[in-house]
Simulated scan of single mutants.
Amino acid sequence: MTAIAVTGHLDLSERTVPLVRDELRALLAAHRPAGLIGLSCLAPGADSLFAEEVLAAGGRLVAVLPSPRYRRWLAEPDRAAFDRLLAAAAAAVVLPYREQSDTAYQAANAELLRRADLVVAVWDGRPGRGLGGTADMVATARQAGVPVRVVWPDGSARAAA
């Protein structure tokens, strides 16, 4: 069994999505479907792309949600994909935080790391904007000795704000 956790940006540009999807697909193809476990918080962007590709590869998806109210934090257009992925997950771990916060996101990252053999980071390599984000997860994984594979194909960019 190989458990792969994902961390990554929410705001991938439109042209970046297929580039990242292709690289994730190639990375996951190196693992036997029967032994593949994908760990994701199912956030929009990198987390959802990874979850979709784990399922497409025949792996098992485990959702790690920072709080029971996590869905409420999502923008309305992102809720259908979240609902679909959560329904397809083999298991869901829901952390007991009442609301979304840096503490809740750090706890979700800790749970991902506790279960992971590898972290896939869809990351532009830039410093983070706070605790619980992609850069923080990468640093924490590296400190814990969990291997990190950065996915940021040539031509990738974050969406303009």
Results as ranks from 00 to 15, higher is better:
residue 33 P to N: 14
residue 97 Y to E: 01
residue 37 I to L: 15
residue 125 G to R: 11
residue 24 L to F: 06
residue 141 A to E: 07
residue 77 P to L: 05
residue 61 L to Y: 03
residue 120 V to Y: 00
residue 60 R to T: 13
residue 4 I to A: 03
residue 41 C to F: 00
residue 32 R to V: 15
residue 116 A to D: 05
residue 142 R to D: 12
residue 102 D to N: 11
residue 132 G to W: 01
residue 111 E to I: 01
residue 34 A to D: 15
residue 104 A to I: 02
residue 41 C to D: 05
residue 114 R to D: 13
residue 36 L to D: 09
residue 136 D to I: 07
residue 11 D to K: 09
residue 145 G to H: 13
residue 41 C to S: 15
residue 40 S to D: 08
residue 7 T to M: 06
residue 134 T to N: 02
residue 50 F to P: 02
residue 154 D to R: 15
residue 14 E to C: 08
residue 144 A to M: 13
residue 159 A to C: 06
residue 81 A to W: 00
residue 44 P to T: 13
residue 50 F to T: 04
residue 12 L to F: 04
residue 1 M to H: 12
residue 109 N to E: 01
residue 45 G to C: 11
residue 118 L to H: 10
residue 38 G to Y: 07
residue 154 D to F: 13
residue 27 L to K: 07
residue 54 V to R: 03
residue 52 E to G: 08
residue 52 E to F: 11
residue 118 L to K: 05
residue 67 S to P: 06
residue 39 L to E: 02
residue 58 G to N: 12
residue 75 A to G: 09
residue 48 S to P: 10
residue 95 L to N: 01
residue 16 T to N: 03
residue 38 G to M: 09
residue 1 M to W: 09
residue 146 V to C: 12
residue 40 S to N: 10
residue 101 S to D: 03
residue 147 P to S: 07
residue 45 G to Q: 09
residue 95 L to K: 00
residue 44 P to V: 12
residue 157 A to E: 14
residue 63 A to G: 00
residue 17 V to H: 00
residue 136 D to F: 11
residue 46 A to Q: 07
residue 57 A to E: 11
residue 111 E to S: 05
residue 96 P to F: 08
residue 47 D to L: 01
residue 47 D to N: 07
residue 83 D to W: 02
residue 147 P to R: 09
residue 61 L to K: 02
residue 117 D to F: 10
residue 61 L to A: 06
residue 90 A to M: 06
residue 81 A to K: 04
residue 62 V to L: 12
residue 64 V to N: 00
residue 133 G to H: 06
residue 154 D to S: 15
residue 27 L to N: 07
residue 51 A to R: 03
residue 24 L to C: 05
residue 37 I to K: 07
residue 136 D to G: 07
residue 78 D to G: 00
residue 106 Q to F: 04
residue 134 T to I: 02
residue 47 D to P: 03
residue 45 G to N: 10
residue 72 R to E: 14
residue 112 L to N: 04
residue 141 A to M: 11
residue 127 P to L: 13
residue 124 D to I: 10
residue 68 P to N: 12
residue 73 W to K: 03
residue 159 A to R: 10
residue 152 W to A: 04
residue 86 L to K: 01
residue 5 A to Y: 00
residue 151 V to E: 00
residue 5 A to G: 08
residue 61 L to F: 05
residue 13 S to K: 05
residue 115 R to S: 04
residue 104 A to F: 03
residue 134 T to L: 03
residue 157 A to W: 06
residue 98 R to M: 09
residue 113 L to K: 01
residue 156 S to V: 06
residue 87 A to N: 08
residue 97 Y to F: 13
residue 54 V to N: 05
residue 14 E to Y: 08
residue 71 R to D: 02
residue 56 A to W: 15
residue 39 L to T: 06
residue 150 V to M: 12
